[in-house]
């Protein structure tokens, strides 16, 4: 067996296929498992996907939201078991794969125009 197949044997069981497909500009709601000491709770994090990076088991995505007037960005590992559930709320019209320009915009300007296609709906 070649190297890639051997690596796949290790990492493929960690891939998950139950998440909806989504892309940059989509507004997503991520139900994350948060472990605080002994306790465990579910936190729902909703925001705009700034980028998706990596492939396979190393893939991550960044979600940006405005929390109490402060921009917050969180990076999730796409295949992480800490993501319990994920929903695509809406899709925004974007022309590039990485919409970092959102960071410099505020208020209405930071809103993306919605498009009808909702992936995985």
């Amino acid at each position: 067996m070649n190297q890639k197949k051997l690596l796949d044997a290790i990492r493929n069981p960690h891939l998950r296929f139950d998440l909806p497909s989504f892309t940059t500009g989509d507004t997503v709601r991520v139900h994350g498992r948060i472990i605080e000491g002994e306790k465990e709770r579910v936190q729902v994090y909703e925001g705009v996907v700034l980028r998706r990076t990596g492939e396979g088991v190393t893939a991550t995505f960044t979600v940006r939201k405005i929390s109490n007037g402060i921009g917050v960005e969180r990076v999730f590992a796409l295949h992480s078991p800490r993501i319990l559930k994920m929903e695509v709320v809406s899709s925004g019209k974007v022309r590039r794969a990485r919409i970092y320009y959102l960071r410099n915009l505020q208020g209405r300007a930071a809103k993306l125009r919605k498009i009808d296609t909702v992936y995985g709906a």
């Binding site: 051997l6 690596l7 290790i10 992480s80």
Partner: peptide, 16 residues
């Protein structure tokens, strides 16, 4: 063989 990444029991990412 090479390096990759897997998820640990707590969902933490482990470089292997």
């Amino acid at each position: 063989v090479g390096m990759t990444q897997i998820f640990g029991p707590e969902g933490n990412r482990v470089p292997v």
